[in-house]
């Protein structure tokens, strides 16, 4: 039996908003530890991995590991009907081997909405994701997630919006991280300096650099990743020319959402 309860729908609504535009299906793995979700976009360029530990839920009962593929577009539609303070219950029973039930209950008027989702095949997930040692990354940048989202939006408005292949070059050099893109008739660079934590202790931009690094990424994907900002105040971007970049948002004390993408390589 699987039975989970969250007294505020917000967390799950935000998770779906953070992944459903880029990823159409996801694999949900429930175990004693918690929920582990993985999804790949249809081009197999980006991977998202989410962990929500059992403690993130107000009630968590999972007596047998359960893995299910679910359609994220359908789920996002259902969750858009849920209010932020609705109580969510997630239930699956062993004899219903191919359905999971999500129930939204309004604490104010007692209205209950019930959605049954059929399991679907997933896009080749889950994959094995090793934890790479910190030392393998050439640079790490931590900044407010709202700032990262703003940077992506600025770059998108400059780059030709009709061009799906706008590339952003992220360069880290000492105490600066630069975001560079080329539009039709010029270029745009956004420079972020490491900020003094004394001034704004809650919103630092921190740069750890082992060596200078300059990598190219697809802006369209970065824009989607920046939607993780509803889940965390800070984003950490780990960069390496040999490893997939990781855009990580920590979810309070109870988990994380990590987006992985390889840099584009000059041919």
């Amino acid at each position: 039996i699987l039975e989970l309860r969250l007294v505020q729908a917000t967390l799950f609504k935000n998770v779906l908003e953070a992944i459903s535009d880029l990823f159409s299906k996801a694999n949900f793995d429930f175990s004693g530890t918690g929920l582990e979700l993985q999804a790949m976009d249809t081009s197999h360029v980006a991977l998202v991995a989410l962990l929500l530990r059992a403690e993130a839920f107000n009630h968590y009962l999972c007596d047998r590991d359960l893995s299910m593929g679910l359609n994220l577009a359908d789920m996002a539609k259902a969750f858009r009907c849920a209010n932020n303070d609705d109580i969510i219950t997630i239930k699956a029973e062993e004899d219903w081997s191919d359905t999971v039930t999500f129930t939204f209950e309004s604490p104010e008027d007692g209205e209950i909405s019930i959605f049954d989702f059929d399991f679907v095949g997933t896009n080749g997930v889950p994959l094995e994701i090793p934890e790479f040692p910190e030392s393998e990354y050439q640079a790490k940048v931590r900044m407010p997630s709202a700032k990262f989202m703003r940077i992506c939006k600025k770059l998108s408005s400059f780059g030709d919006s009709g061009d799906r292949d706008t590339v952003v070059i992220i360069s880290v050099d000492k105490e600066c991280v630069n975001f560079f893109t080329r539009g039709k008739t010029g270029t745009s660079t956004i420079v972020c300096r490491q900020t003094q934590t004394v001034d704004k202790p809650k919103e630092p931009t921190l740069i750890e650099m082992k060596e200078q690094v300059s990598l190219a990424f697809d802006l369209r994907y970065m824009n989607s990743f920046s939607k993780g900002s509803t889940l965390s105040d800070q984003v950490t971007i780990s960069l390496s020319s040999n490893l997939p970049a990781v855009f990580e948002y920590k979810i309070a004390e109870t988990g994380y959402i990590r987006y992985y993408m390889l840099p584009r390589i000059e041919e």
């Binding site: 790949m40 081009s43 197999h44 360029v45 980006a46 991977l47 080749g124 889950p126 994959l127 094995e128 994701i129 590339v167 190219a216 697809d218 490893l243 997939p244 992985y260 993408m261 390889l262 584009r264 390589i265 000059e266 041919e267």
Partner: peptide
């Protein structure tokens, strides 16, 4: 031209 590799080139099925 910059080529985009698939993430599956790096991570594999368990």
């Amino acid at each position: 031209v910059r080529k985009q590799s698939q993430i599956t080139a790096f991570f594999s099925s368990p």
